[in-house]
């Protein structure tokens, strides 16, 4: 019952994003600000987790394939495929849900409880349009880029650690990666990236927009934004895998 209430209200909120902007330049400027806030500021964390993801996966895959019957190039194939299919898009999105989701929800939630949203409405500004659409758009533009970077760095981390520790040479790694590479996987991975970006930004904006009360409730909205984004990411991850693979 409550699910339908929230889902309905979420859809109604999304519908309000499609009203014509009062002033395109203001929305455009806001879009760029948000691309910096969402995309550029997440670069550091994406770089760190991606390199480690690839490195750890390489070491662990080598450990599991200890038998001499399997060619070492298989490690490269496994690491690069899992980076493209799952580690890059999903793990990165889960981390970004924590970082971006909480910041979107608490920013909009604070604006709600301190009446800044009311102030916008009184001026005649469509508050959901001005506050939420640039964030969703910025997320849908920058998060897939971050995920492409993440995949690249994850594979890079795997190559580097594999070579460094003598598990397999960089050449063997790349040979393995090439042998199993399917362009379709990139398409699938990007589909995930767009979906997750939309989930993180819209769900968090929804949680923030319907905050009521004070700073305590802002904190709760921010927590809910992260939890629901993560659950929905995993759910849609599964659904997309069922549908597309």
């Amino acid at each position: 019952m409550r699910f339908f209430f929230h889902f309905g209200r979420y859809l109604l909120l999304l519908k309000q994003l499609f009203k014509r902007p009062e002033n395109y330049r203001m929305y455009w400027d806001e879009l760029f600000r948000q691309m910096v806030a969402i995309g550029v500021s997440s670069l550091g964390i994406v770089i760190i987790i991606s390199v480690f993801m690839g490195a750890v996966t390489t070491v662990q895959t080598a450990y599991q394939l200890i038998s001499g019957l399997v060619a070492k190039t298989v490690i490269g194939a496994i690491v690069s495929d899992s980076s493209i299919l799952e580690l890059g898009p999903t793990i990165t999105s889960l981390v970004l849900a924590g970082k971006i989701g909480s910041s979107i929800a608490s920013e909009i939630g604070t604006m709600r409880v301190t009446e800044q949203i009311d102030a916008l409405e009184i001026m005649g500004v469509n508050a959901p349009g001005y506050l939420i659409s640039p964030k969703i758009l910025a997320a849908v533009i920058t998060i897939p880029m971050l995920i492409v970077l993440s995949i690249t760095l994850s594979i890079g981390g795997g190559i580097f650690v594999g070579d460094l520790t003598g598990i397999l040479s960089a050449q063997q790694f790349i040979e393995g990666a090439r042998s199993s590479f399917l362009p379709y996987n990139i398409f699938f991975s990007l589909t995930k990236a767009f979906t997750f970006a939309f989930i993180i930004s819209s769900v968090s904006a929804y949680q923030g927009y319907y905050t009521s009360g004070g700073s305590l409730e802002v904190g709760q909205s921010s927590t809910k934004a992260v939890v629901y984004s993560c659950i929905l990411i995993l759910l849609s991850d599964y659904l997309l895998a069922q549908l597309m693979l």
Binding site: T114, Q116, A119
Partner: peptide, 9 residues
């Protein structure tokens, strides 16, 4: 004019 001013932070 809002009770707590409601300026954009």
């Amino acid at each position: 004019l809002f009770q707590n001013s409601a300026l954009f932070d």
